[in-house]
């Protein structure tokens, strides 16, 4: 049992649960927008071979390139990948919290 003193010393005794859908949305938006902005920045900066490293993402994201079209394709991939990661983190977090409660 928790000591009385430690109970008093808490603002909240609740363990947060995460809304996986909301986390997916947030991570998806961050992922998509980040990839879009990173691509767009390189395109705008220009140069002989813009974004040769970022370009390597096409190994994973078929159709992606460091071009304006690629930026929009990246946006979709980023949303999807970030969303999936967020959703997975959320679900797993809740599962572990539930398991620890039992």
């Amino acid at each position: 049992m928790e000591s009385r003193a430690s109970q008093q010393d808490e603002v909240s005794r609740t363990i947060a649960r995460v809304k996986a859908d909301a986390l997916a949305l947030v991570c998806g938006l961050i992922g998509g927008l980040s990839l879009f902005v990173m691509t767009a920045w390189l395109v705008l900066k220009g140069g002989p071979q813009p974004g040769q490293h970022l370009q390597l993402l096409s190994n994973f994201f078929v159709g992606y390139s460091v071009t304006w079209t690629g930026a929009f394709v990246g946006l979709l991939y980023g949303v999807f990948t970030g969303g999936a990661a967020g959703w997975l983190v959320g679900r797993m977090y809740n599962a572990v919290v539930d398991a620890r409660k039992k």
Partner: peptide
């Protein structure tokens, strides 16, 4: 206040982020 200050369980978040990161590297 209970809701807003609810604690995030470090172990649970560690497990979740760890699993997704590990799986991500493996998948890549």
């Amino acid at each position: 206040i209970e809701g807003a200050f609810a604690r995030i369980d470090p172990l649970a978040l560690g497990v979740a982020v760890g699993a997704v990161s590990g799986a991500g590297i493996f998948a890549a």
